[in-house]
């Protein structure tokens, strides 16, 4: 039992990070504001989690401008996709090994 839990990726322990990766798995570049609306997080909270994911190189960042407003978009990297997929597999494995609750 314990070993399955060990396979869960620490980088995805947090629900916000799970949410970020879920959105980035099915979309190409996603703007910060879109992420904010979808996940309903505050700027600061979302930014810090994005930074954590960027640090482990699971997300790529692209900074641009719309007029004078800075506009930042994010994309899941290949490493990030693989890591997230493994995390999902581990979650599924964990679910299968737990007897269904009545």
């Amino acid at each position: 039992m314990k070993s399955f839990i060990d396979q869960l990726n620490k980088a995805f322990e947090n629900r916000v990070r799970l949410g970020i990766m879920s959105v980035l798995m099915v979309n190409d570049w996603v703007e910060f504001n879109t992420l904010k609306e979808t996940l309903q997080q505050t700027d600061g909270n979302l930014a810090s989690h994005l930074m954590a994911l960027e640090k482990v190189q699971y997300v790529a960042i692209r900074k641009g401008f719309i007029g004078r407003k800075p506009n930042t978009s994010y994309q899941a990297t290949e490493t990030g996709r693989e890591a997230f997929q493994e995390h999902l597999n581990a979650l599924e494995f964990l679910l299968k090994s737990v007897p269904a609750k009545s």
């Binding site: 799970l18 949410g19 879920s22 798995m25 099915v26 979309n27 979808t38 999902l88 979650l91």
Partner: peptide, 13 residues
């Protein structure tokens, strides 16, 4: 987690 992930994937795309 899994159901939330599925939901996020669908709702964002």
């Amino acid at each position: 987690d899994l159901s939330e992930i599925r939901q996020m994937m669908e709702r964002s795309s």
